[in-house]
């Protein structure tokens, strides 16, 4: 695909150059702190306490990573995270898209009622304890489904997907109906294939949300072998905070605070897998896919 050939005026060329440079600078500004995190995870404790900021450690050490991988705990938790994220994303997409499509049909009776219900639930929530009781009464405690089902539809995402469906030209639907398709057929055969970039986008959104969620696991999962990696990350970050002063005085003084490099290494380990999926999904954001394929 790619952009069609365009006239380029001198002004346009200057704009291109400026745009190129500006975006490059923005990209660097946004990645630098993460580079520090990576560098710090390979640095010694002495360097981390004496140098305030660096991107290349003076002495390079793998100690933090050796510690992390000295047990199968992190590997296991990453596998749990990957499994929950993959299954969860599929489930979330299924729930969201199957609900968004009917809601995008303007002449569906009761549509306004359903939409009000969705919007209302965005603003008002029963809180932690009632939700816990629901999860418990469904028998989901200590089950991976407790990390997926309670967040199966993000109303925010649902509304945006609905809007995308609404923007698909109505003629398409009409012509499909003439061809004898049922609504279900239109949804599966026309609407879904057309919304590939949208699916890719929301796959990303759900995957990231599920990957980053640690609180559900803390509440619903007590079996430590089922904890996703974010729980471990959270615990390490919290430990390095809770050993400060009075918290330490009343807390667990027999717990030694983790090294800073270990903390940073866990950040890297817990972040990299989800970062990697973006470049793969990116290709689905290619231009013109939606309407282009309609006409082609």
């Amino acid at each position: 695909m790619g952009m069609p050939k365009m006239h380029n005026t001198p002004g346009g060329r200057i704009f291109d150059v400026v745009n190129f440079v500006v975006l490059g600078v923005i990209g660097i500004l946004m990645i630098i702190p993460f580079l520090y995190v990576i560098a710090g995870s390979f640095a010694t404790e002495a360097e981390l306490t004496s140098r305030s900021f660096f991107i290349f450690p003076e002495t390079f050490t793998l100690e933090a990573y050796e510690y992390i991988f000295s047990t199968d705990r992190f590997i296991r938790s990453i596998l749990v995270s990957i499994g929950v994220t993959v299954v969860g994303t599929i489930v979330c997409l299924f729930f969201t898209f199957s609900m968004a499509y009917p809601l995008s049909r303007r002449n569906l009776a009761g549509r306004n009622l359903f939409m009000n219900m969705v919007v209302f639930s965005m603003m008002f929530s029963g809180g932690m304890i009632p939700t816990y009781i629901v999860v418990k009464s469904l028998g989901l405690l200590d089950s991976y489904w407790a990390l997926i089902l309670p967040i199966a539809i993000n109303p925010f995402n649902l509304i945006i997907v609905k809007t995308f469906f609404q923007n698909i030209p109505i003629e398409l639907e009409e012509s499909a109906k003439v061809d004898g398709c049922t609504e279900l057929g239109i949804f599966w055969r026309i609407m879904l294939p057309l919304s590939k970039p949208v699916i890719a986008t929301f796959a990303l959104f759900y995957a990231v949300a599920i990957w980053n969620d640690f609180f559900s696991a803390l509440l619903y999962i007590s079996d430590s072998s089922k904890w996703p990696v974010q729980v471990l990350l959270q615990q390490i970050i919290l430990l390095s905070q809770s050993t400060i002063g009075d918290t330490a005085a009343t807390g667990a003084e027999y717990v030694t605070p983790p090294d800073q490099s270990l903390k940073l290494a866990v950040v890297v380990i817990a972040t990299l897998p989800i970062l990697i999926i973006y470049p793969f999904l990116q290709k689905h954001f290619a231009k013109g896919m939606l309407l282009g394929s309609v006409k082609g």
């Binding site: 299924f94 969705v118 639930s121 009632p130 939700t131 629901v134 199966a152 609504e183």
Partner: peptide, 25 residues
């Protein structure tokens, strides 16, 4: 539209169970 309503069911169930059932809180 019966097909549309069928599609709607999983989502509606979700909202009823996980959003509205705890609303008593």
């Amino acid at each position: 539209d019966k097909w549309l309503y069928l599609l709607l069911i999983p989502g509606l169930l979700y909202f009823i169970v996980f959003k509205y059932a705890p609303m008593w809180g």
